[in-house]
Simulated scan of single mutants.
Amino acid sequence: MLITYGLLGLAILSVWFPDVRLSASLRLPAWGVLLLAAIVSGLATGILAPLALPSIVVFIVLAVSAQRVSRRPGAKWLSRLLLLLTMLAALALALHLLPGFHNPRIIDKLVLSPGGAPFTQYLNFDKGLAGLVLLALFCVRAQHRPEFVSAMKRAAPVMAVTLAAVVGTALAIGFVKPDFKFPDITLQFLLVNLLLTCVAEEAFFRGLLQGRIAAFLGNTSSGELAAVLIASVLFGLTHAAGGWRVTLLATMAGLGYGVAYRYTKRIEAAIATHFIVNAVQFLALTYPYLRG
């Protein structure tokens, strides 16, 4: 299990690595090589059943086709159709609707905070796969360290305002209360949350959805604002099963993530803002929320 998810995690991180050069004329993306290794390992260990392979292949083919066709002049409607199908396939993976994925449960109904509800954490290969492919093909990323540092500096005020707004609202509505802690599972939880939750959700809602809505609306100021609002509301609605408070807080947080992405034009800013909000809740507040 560790090998499979270690390879998947490295595949996600390797999106920022140079391609693997096999010959003078043949290069492969490092993330693709590592993803293939993760899939083979997953099949060998039973995390993936053979039934998962058609879903994986169809999703990757759709995503690659959508990305390539979008560059072609005169293929506007085909590009939109392929993007829509890619979004639907990514959602199906992220929501665990496709067969053949046996995601192991690594935390089972743990009560971490006094008065807190129990929570469970899975290693979701399907969601991580979706996030990886979307991150690699559709997200604007920093190409070098100075660019990354610049994006983080520009996003810092957005991060601070988002954190203050979400935490303040969560405390005000009685969703959580202060609870400073550093349990043994901290590193595991944060690493899984970063790679399999924050990356996947930001790649979909900001990198793909918000970016394409803004482009559809002409990349004008009003169009970009509409894209932020639409992606944020949809992000909130995907949390509706948790009740109105979760939906409200997720929508507020999504606005912050969307503004960070719009302001910097780099997906790293949205991922970092998302991760900071989640990490602060885990380390300093009731996690996941107060019972009752």
Rank of each mutant, 00 (worst) to 15 (best):
G9T: 12
P288W: 02
I267C: 01
D126L: 02
I60A: 14
V64W: 10
R105W: 08
M1T: 14
T220W: 04
A66Q: 11
G128Q: 00
S14E: 09
I271Y: 02
S222T: 14
R206C: 00
Q281G: 13
G258L: 00
I3W: 13
G174A: 03
A92W: 11
L191W: 07
T220S: 13
H96I: 09
V58S: 05
Q143G: 14
V149Y: 12
F138I: 04
R80G: 13
L195S: 01
I185H: 10
L209W: 09
S113C: 09
L196C: 00
L110P: 09
N124P: 01
A250M: 06
L208V: 07
T197V: 14
A117G: 11
A155N: 09
L48F: 06
F125R: 05
A164G: 00
A94P: 11
A214P: 08
L36N: 06
A38D: 11
L8V: 05
L53C: 04
V33D: 09
F204W: 04
L88K: 06
A151L: 06
A226F: 08
Y122F: 12
V246P: 11
S23L: 05
V246L: 14
R68A: 12
Q210V: 05
V57P: 10
V20R: 03
L187F: 14
A37K: 07
R80A: 10
A89V: 04
N193E: 08
L83I: 07
V228W: 00
A165D: 06
K127A: 02
V69S: 09
M87F: 15
L84M: 12
D179E: 13
L135M: 11
A94G: 15
L195N: 01
G74W: 13
I47Q: 12
F235D: 04
D179T: 08
K177D: 14
N219D: 14
V167D: 06
G223M: 07
S221I: 14
A279F: 03
L134N: 06
F275M: 02
S221V: 15
F138P: 08
A24V: 12
A240W: 10
L95V: 12
A240L: 12
V277R: 01
T251A: 04
L187H: 07
G254A: 05
P99Q: 10
L285D: 06
T220H: 02
S221D: 12
A130P: 10
S113Q: 11
T247W: 02
N219R: 11
V57C: 06
V64Q: 10
L93V: 03
A269G: 03
I173D: 11
S23A: 10
L171S: 01
I267E: 04
G243R: 07
F180D: 10
